[in-house]
Design a protein around this nucleic acid. Structure first.
Length: 928
RNA sequence: GCCGGUGUGGCGGAAUUGGUAGACGCGCUGGACUCAAAAUCCAGUUCUGGCAACAGAGUGUGGGUUCGAUUCCCUCCACCGGCACCA
């Protein structure tokens, strides 16, 4: 009995079947190869958005594909439940963060389940539960005892009105987002994890991750930022503590004309003591946020301290400046200024009229100097005189060399710093050395004198894990006036975060509550106070993957972890390329060093999906503000060539302005609610569109017309399958068909080959995770099946079969039915990972037997792919002029002859061709 | 500012990795069906010139390598992601 496609019923029934059979609950099975497919866990923000749908559909497609290929697949889900938005909601709505969070989780879980993801829900957890974070606290205590966790002063954004620390996100144009007050930098003590101890290993490990995108590996490499250089000591006049600076360019040392120090540097503080101007400058440096982008883009400013440092080679007195771009927290808080050979120093020196000295020149300039001024070595004036008016040819021809030489002659650098490597000049005994030579010579000198050393420096900084917020995991430390910072003993863990709290203003309830912090010192038993800061939420998301493997484990994880780990496939947004993924890798190494896991890296294959974007529409309001209108409420107007000419609001039919295509967001009101779409089209259609509209790594442009197109395809698939069900003849199901050349029906054979070729393409694309072309292959298969037995099929059939006899009667009918049946079984299995519900139903309806989840993956039949002839494109001088049909085994001369004999080709070839290039199976290019 | 990425018809994208640019889908145009509309089906659809056959141009810009470049190299432009307390 034929049915219409009722997606809601189909999806409910399939989901019920999976639930009842516990289809996705897995246990360790040594007999089967495992596959751990992990998607980044969601923050329970309130409702599922399209970004989630995309992320989890990609993960689900990969999971289901791997399962159909015989793997024991674990696909889990959890909630990254601590975080700032819960506190904001609490302040806004007067609800406790816990209550808000749990309600969101319940709602979003139901939304995820409606998508039909093959998730093992028995392993679900929320990171805000004590049974989860107790392990995190325990781990922190262990790291503390190992010396991998420590406390130091560190800079935060301070809102002077709210008297609170702000996240970078909460600083807008240097002001607090709620108060509008100018934000200040403030130093407070905070906890850090020594990720820098693992910097080299984190860097080296990237080379062992072939399954990670190069872009992510490059970003991580640059973030870790390993550099080799020299740490050099500059004495400061007046018997003060010497300044230590690190430089990767010791070859430019003789070009140092000043030193810069951070505003918080002790020397700066000293200089300000009786100088109000310097004090004011230092105070001004406190304004603005701590974000690197802000610091790097702000105007470079400085002030002279009046102090002098001594150049370690020349003994020259160098002015010491305070500069707003030097940061106390990173490195030594002091840098050497080489304006001749550093872009930023050049700008600074030009602005403040500091000396610019040229000490490095290019190859061409050096050659000129050596040739013409050898005897005048080291003497600027006589060398310039020796060069005179005549410029050597090398210099004139080499790009930029002439300007450089002229600068050299004048002894100034006019337009910009010369930052390339080159040869030393004006450097006394180091003249004529190159970078390496100068590096080694200076390193030996300073190491000998004890005022400098070779050093490897990392840009990577230790991980600050303290947050001055309530809704996070409490840091398990007790402060005792006699014993200092003492970790909470193991048997007193977890330190519980109270969930039933009231927000008074913006203050953390556990900081506001005088009772919560009161405790006794575990060491001396005296009165003591708890740490009221909580952990960075990256702490929870750094080990959640491991917890999935060991539900209910007494410790963080147990032996089961080593069956499942490392993760075989990780799927998540590219915005996590650096921070999350670096902490994640670091934490895995911490787990390894605790003996909990045996692998070095947590993830073998990484896929970073792009954003979901959509058109924006708006109306300018009378008060100058912009009213953003959701795309769902807008109708786009096009001309008869399909170009967009405008848009109107469906409600009033009046025009709206068209904005940019942007990431779906609340602020632009261009978010499309997945639940609405699922209600209207079904989960399979939404999943299908998410996979089809763009390759996983690229941004996905949401289009409801596109979604409607996917619904159309599924309806066609449904109708075709039912039609086949009705028309098939059970007596024709024998598989021992004769497919010999003489007896094969040309159309059936061509169609079968097309299907097997498409199957090959789809399998290739599944392996490389280009899922949009998997869907397109499936559509092509349905198109091919649809035209089998119609006039169009003869046209579409591949040329090599055209001349073959067309057989009639029972055998041809049998063959066509065989191709249809086989084609459908291939098509349903190719689609099963993407549209699991409809595939499940049709698989059963067509009696293919068993459960499609375990039906095995289709492989192309080499017999079906065999061809007698191929079509070659023929070019003349690289321009396509015609095509020829040749037997697959045609010899070179036969191909040449056929190409030249072709009428479309020959009219462009006059005389004997100079050269004929033949690429087998593809192209012939005649160079005339 | 620094690091990473992207750029192809009206739109999303494809091109099995140097070999017939525009597959597949959307949109649009025309037709069939219908009293009509929707749905469905059929045909067409890169641009320019031409009734057509056909010719020329064409993958962000400018250059280079090659018999041949969307693909490799250099330059520039635009947009997106990250920048350590959003997650």
């Amino acid at each position: 009995m034929r049915e219409t496609y009722d997606f809601a019923a189909v999806e409910a029934a399939a989901q019920q079947f999976w639930n009842e059979t516990r289809a996705f609950e897995v246990v360790e099975d040594a007999a089967k190869p495992k596959f751990f497919c992990l998607s980044m866990l969601p923050y329970p923000s309130g409702a599922l958005h399209m970004g989630h749908v995309r992320n989890y559909t990609i993960g689900d497609v990969i999971s289901r594909y791997q399962r159909m290929n015989g793997r024991n697949v674990l696909q889990p889900m959890a909630w990254d439940a601590f975080g700032l938005p819960a506190e904001n909601a609490a302040i806004k709505n007067n609800t406790a963060p816990a209550k808000w969070t749990y309600a969101n989780i319940d709602h979003m879980r139901a939304q995820l389940q409606a998508m039909g993801y093959a998730i093992d829900w028995s392993r679900e957890f929320a990171t805000c539960r004590p049974e989860y974070y107790v392990h995190e606290q325990r781990m922190f205590v262990r790291l503390f005892k190992k010396g991998l966790a420590y406390r130091k002063q560190s800079v935060v954004n301070w809102d002077p009105v709210d008297q609170t620390v702000l996240a970078n996100e909460q600083v807008i144009d240097g002001r607090g987002w709620r108060t509008g007050a100018l934000v200040e930098k403030r130093e407070i003590p905070q906890w850090f994890l020594k990720i820098t101890d693992y910097a080299q290993e984190l860097l080296d490990g990237l080379d062992k991750l072939p399954g990670w995108p190069d872009s992510v590996k490059t970003m991580q490499r640059n973030w870790i930022g390993r550099s080799e250089g020299l740490e050099i000591e500059f004495l400061v006049e007046g018997d003060r503590t010497p300044l230590r600076v690190f430089t990767t360019r010791p070859d430019t040392l003789m070009g140092v004309t000043f030193l810069s120090i951070a505003a918080e540097h002790p020397l700066a503080q000293e200089a300000a003591r009786d100088n109000p101007k310097i004090q004011k400058f230092i105070d001004d440096c406190r304004h603005g946020g701590t974000a690197e982008a802000d610091i790097e883009t702000q105007e470079k400013k400085g002030i002279d301290t009046g102090l002098s440092a001594i150049h370690p080679v020349s003994g020259e007195r160098l002015p010491v400046w305070i500069a707003n771009f030097v940061l106390m927290g990173y490195g030594t808080g002091a840098v050497m200024g080489v304006p001749g050979h550093d872009e930023r120093d050049w700008e600074f020196a030009t602005k403040y009229d500091l000396l610019i000295r040229m000490v490095i020149v290019s190859d061409a300039v050096r050659d000129a100097i050596v040739d013409l001024g050898h005897e005048a070595e080291g003497n600027q004036d006589s060398m310039s005189a020796a060069l005179g008016e005549s410029k050597p040819l090398d210099v004139v021809e080499a790009p930029g060399a002439l300007a450089l030489l002229e600068d050299f002659e004048r002894g100034i650098i006019e337009d910009r710093a010369y930052t390339e490597y080159g040869w030393l000049v004006n450097s006394g005994e180091y003249d004529g050395l190159d970078y390496r030579g100068a590096f080694d010579a200076l390193a030996r000198k300073f190491e000998g004198e004890g005022c400098g050393a070779r050093r490897v420096n990392f840009r990577l900084r230790d991980w600050g894990v303290s947050r001055q917020r309530y809704w996070g995991c409490p840091i398990p430390i007790i402060y005792c006036s006699t014993c200092g910072a003492v970790p909470v003993p193991e048997d007193q863990l977890p330190v519980l975060l109270p969930e039933n709290v009231k927000f008074m203003g913006v203050q953390s309830p556990i900081k506001a509550d005088p009772e919560w912090r009161k405790t006794t010192c575990p060491q001396c038993g005296g009165a003591a106070e708890r740490e009221t800061d909580t952990f960075d939420t990256f702490m929870e998301s750094s080990w959640y993957y491991a917890r999935y493997t060991s539900p209910g484990a007494k410790d963080m994880i147990d032996a089961r972890a080593n069956y499942w780990l490392p993760v075989d496939q990780y799927v998540g947004g590219i915005e996590h390329a650096i921070l999350h993924l670096l902490y994640f890798r670091f934490y895995h190494k911490l787990l390894r060093d605790e003996g909990m896991v045996h692998s070095d890296e947590p993830v073998t294959n990484l896929l970073c999906q792009g954003m979901v974007i959509a058109e924006t529409f708006y109306r300018d309001q009378a008060d100058g503000s912009r009213q953003w209108i959701n795309p769902v409420d807008v109708e786009v107007i096009r001309d008869d060539k399909a170009r967009i000419t405008g848009a109107v609001l469906k409600a009033d039919g009046k025009p709206v302005e068209i904005g940019a295509v942007e990431k779906m967001s609340k602020s632009k009101n261009n978010g499309v609610d997945p639940q609405t779409m699922v209600g209207k089209y079904g989960a399979d259609t939404v999943r299908l569109f998410s996979m089809f509209a763009a390759p996983p790594e690229m941004s996905l442009d949401w289009s409801e017309n596109g979604v409607a197109g996917m619904a159309r395809f599924l309806r066609r698939l449904w109708a075709y399958s039912w039609q086949f069900c009705e028309s098939r003849n059970p007596n024709r199901m024998a598989a021992d068909l004769r497919w010999t050349a003489a007896e094969a029906d040309a159309e059936a054979k061509a169609c079968r080959r097309q299907i097997h070729e498409l199957m090959n393409q789809a399998n290739y694309d599944y392996e490389r995770k280009q899922l949009n072309t998997v869907v397109s292959a499936a559509m092509k298969i349905l198109n091919a099946l649809d035209t089998l037995g119609t006039h169009a099929a003869t046209v579409a059939s591949v040329s090599s079969d055209v001349g073959k006899p067309k057989i009639d009667g029972e055998l041809a009918t049998q063959q066509r039915e065989f191709v249809r049946r086989e084609g459908l079984s291939v098509l349903l299995r190719l689609l099963a990972p993407v549209t699991p519900h409809v595939s499940h139903r049709l698989w059963n309806e067509l009696d293919f037997g068993g459960n499609i989840l375990d039906a095995g993956w289709p492989q192309a039949d080499p017999e079906a792919l065999k061809k007698a002839s191929v079509t070659l494109a023929v070019q003349v001088n690289g321009k396509l002029r015609g095509t020829i049909e040749v037997p697959v085994d045609a010899r070179r001369d036969a191909i040449e002859q056929a190409a030249l004999a072709n009428g479309d080709v020959s009219k462009y070839v006059t005389g004997t061709p100079k050269k004929i290039i033949i690429v087998p199976g593809k192209i012939v290019n005649i160079v005339a």
